[in-house]
């Protein structure tokens, strides 16, 4: 059997797909910013918080890292309304992505914090800084620099993993592709175009992170 590719019908709908791609980028970028904030906070609590807090953060990190993102998404979107917490599909997607990325990033940032020489912390103590000041002013910057590549790869995983939020009818790139294939019956072509878009976005973000690393960590503070 021979199959004739018809991309024309897909390209007619390109604006829709691009809109979906834009939402994918927005979801991932939002999740990264808030997730990183969660991670920076949790990494501090995980290393220097009181014991019960440390255990709690560890439970959060291990709980998220050992369950699938899709199930976390279902819990947030389908289970939480039973407790009176309701989200729209797109909101639920962002919340799930923040919670998930936050856990992975916590573990990464913590590794970075532990890579900072103890001497630097002691200098802070000698200067009479408080623990959190030491973390914020001395430890955080070199820690983030050390783990930047790992954070960047984790973000790419987040970006690609975001395609499963189409399962709760958030209308990002995959969801747009799904609805297009059901109206055009050109599943293969639609998914190829969407896949190429994902690949392009992923490659673009890798470039962006390389540039960001150079601007913030190489040129920004030469010492």
């Amino acid at each position: 059997m021979t199959y004739v590719f018809q991309f024309g019908i897909v390209f007619d709908q390109l604006p829709l797909l691009l809109e979906g791609a834009l939402l994918t980028i927005r979801l991932a970028a939002t999740a990264m910013v808030f997730g990183l904030a969660v991670a920076v906070m949790c990494a501090y609590l995980r290393t220097s918080g009181p014991k019960p807090v440390r255990v709690l953060v560890a439970a959060y990190v291990e709980g998220i890292r050992n369950t699938p993102f899709l199930v976390q998404l279902y819990i947030i979107y389908f289970s939480l309304p039973a407790l009176g917490i309701r989200f729209e599909a797109n909101q639920a997607a962002v919340v799930a992505m923040v919670v998930s990325f936050g856990a992975y990033a916590t573990e990464i940032v913590r590794a970075g914090v532990q890579s900072v020489p103890v001497g630097q912390v002691e200098v802070g103590l000698a200067l009479g800084l408080k623990r959190f000041q030491i973390y914020r002013l001395i430890v955080l910057f070199p820690a983030l620099k050390a783990v930047f590549p790992a954070l960047a790869s984790q973000f790419i995983l987040l970006l690609l993993g975001s395609s499963v939020v189409s399962a709760i009818s958030a209308n990002e790139l995959t969801a747009v592709a799904n609805s297009l294939q059901s109206t055009t019956f050109r599943a293969f072509e639609v998914y190829i175009v969407a896949t190429v878009m994902y690949l392009t976005i992923a490659v673009a973000f890798r470039g962006f992170f390389a540039a960001l690393y150079w601007i913030v960590f190489v040129r920004g503070r030469e010492r």
Binding site: L160, S163, A177, A187, F188, I192, T195, Y198, L199
Partner: peptide
């Protein structure tokens, strides 16, 4: 690069729908 740079879900769709198109 190709399979680490694209979503698993897309790979699933492409294989699921794609291969059946070729009979």
């Amino acid at each position: 690069q190709l399979f680490q740079g694209t979503p698993l879900l897309m790979q699933l769709f492409l294989i699921y729908y794609g291969l059946s198109l070729f009979g």
